[in-house]
Amino acid sequence: MMTPTPAVLIENLNFSYGAARVLEQINLSIMPGEFIGLVGPNAGGKSTLLKLILGLLEPQTGRIEVLGQTPRRAARRVGYVPQFPNFARDFPISVVEVVALGCLSGSAIWSQRRAADRAAAQQALAEVEALDLATRRLGTLSGGQLQRVLLARALVSAPEMLILDEPTANIDQRVEGEIFNLLATLNQRLTIIVVSHDIAFISAYVSRVACLNRTLLDHDTAAVDDHIMSQLYGGHIRRITHRHPHHD
């Protein structure tokens, strides 16, 4: 039987910003259909690793393949939800326009598919249960609403993989659960990588946890114990086991 091509294959990856080494000897293989949680302390290199996978940064040494291609080529097949949006919140644009812009690509510069893209945007908004926001101005959205809109923008181009950087960092716990339930549904057809600071919360949703603090430790969710946690965060960590109300 043929082994499927990994969605992400990283071999011996190193990356530095100037003299500061951020990632060291990273090896990671993510198979299609996986739901991976990438956790670790602040400045541990999580966002940098995502940017390398997305082709926004080039590794100094090592190899990255995404969906069997170079990261830059594969970026169009990947949906991305950033931690800090790179736009001004008061930009004069409606929600449906933001999502429709996700349909644009470099290969269709001359195409004028405005109506088709708008219809696709409405469908993507419906999928994230945010169709009622379509005509709203971007600046009037709450944190949770904005995350749903950015998720719709990532989904509108029908990607094969979804990458989310701290998607629930600035929203309340109830909405956090709703968004992760949505991701669990999307995982039925998409490979998902999610960066999070909250290992306890995401472990209920993800199939595997990759712990990153300059180097990477890869574990099944069940295997994350006190020893791994203190190795990752570099100090004494007390783990509290608790249940979340939104798991089912």
Binding site: V78, Y80, P82, N86, F87, L104, S105, G106, I109
Partner: peptide, 11 residues
């Protein structure tokens, strides 16, 4: 609106 996103989309 969003240069980084445009770059990701290959624009």
């Amino acid at each position: 609106f969003d240069e980084e996103f445009a770059r990701l989309r290959g624009v």
